[in-house]
Design a protein around this nucleic acid. Structure first.
Lengths: 164, 164
DNA sequence: GAGAGACTACTCGGATACAGTCTGTCCGAGTAAATCCGG
DNA sequence: CCGGATTTACTCGGACAGACTGTATCCGAGTAGTCTCTC
């Protein structure tokens, strides 16, 4: 998959954004420090989310990112596609169209092999599409101790991670 | 996806092998010439199929590759996995395990985000697993004029492509 | 005509080079909150 | 105490370098049919 790390990082960052009190911004620096990621590179991932209008940005101090919609209105597929641009998992070459005896009406639609791969990819997308960011965040919260995740997020909000 | 071209090429070659009369071998050279692919590089893809025991090889003149099992007993997922090695679409980094407040019993199994991506990947695999090479070959045949595909395959078998 | 040797056509595996993408860093420009400073 | 200038902390976007992987080529070794040559 294209931009492997970015997809993963974007999901982790969105989960934080989804847990924050509504309206609150969080900076790239805060997210990078919390997750131990390279700030500038993570920033590029967040920029893509911004371009896809999944998050809103605010410049200046106290600025940063926040969700542009309710977390229940964002699917995990939205996030993955925002990062991966329009990249498909499968990119056919032009093998097929060079062959003789092709039926004219089938050339433009790709071969049976293309259709096979695209169908599989649709299932992949469908699976991601069926989970909203809200559900993912709730599910992620359960990976932590009681209130553990909330504690982490408020640490991010209050910049406590910088004191160490 | 890892080795994009190899996955595609392997599927095209397997479709030829599935159409051939049983027991007949076809050489890398023949397949490469027919599809207009670089012989030596295509050869590496076929070697992987051989290693996965999907195809059998025979050295010497008249040698080459043939299917090791009936085409109905090979799924398209078998072929894709044979090429892609054990590569997963999603490769998590160690972001998750570094966080505080994690529940001990959840650390080793990966985070909710890992599970999300793996679930999507399972759907992708399931889709490929549900189509056998036999079905793919039949479907591919329909992309051609009546008997067009059969004509192509017998051209390969009789090495007619070299005369041009 | 039969058998031994040379030849040919293929597979197999490793070494290597090139290109493209992923990963990561750096910097300058723009913006807005916070701070400072003079009146 | 007020208002304007400065500082600070962030986003945004581009340029760039290094590493990794995908793409492709080449070569030598091994194997098995095929051909030739000799007896």
């Amino acid at each position: 998959m294209a931009l492997r790390n970015h997809v993963e990082w974007a999901l982790y960052c969105c989960v934080v954004l989804a847990t924050l009190p509504p309206g609150q911004y969080v900076s790239t620096k805060a997210l990078a420090a919390f997750y131990g990621l390279p700030k500038d590179y993570l920033h590029k991932a967040l920029q893509r989310l911004s371009k896809a209008e999944l998050v809103e940005t605010a410049p200046g101090p106290m600025g940063g990112y926040r969700l542009a919609k309710a977390s229940g209105a964002i699917t995990t597929l939205d996030i993955v596609e925002a990062i991966g641009a329009s990249d498909s998992l499968y990119r056919p070459t032009s093998i097929h169209s060079r062959l003789p005896f092709l039926r004219d009406d089938n050339v433009s639609e790709g071969s049976a092999i293309d259709r096979l791969m695209y169908a599989a990819e649709r299932q992949w997308r469908r699976s991601l599409h069926s989970v909203t960011l809200q559900e993912l965040a709730q599910s992620y919260e359960r990976d932590f101790d009681a209130d553990g995740w909330q504690k982490n997020v408020s640490d991010i909000r209050e910049r406590r991670w910088l004191e160490t």
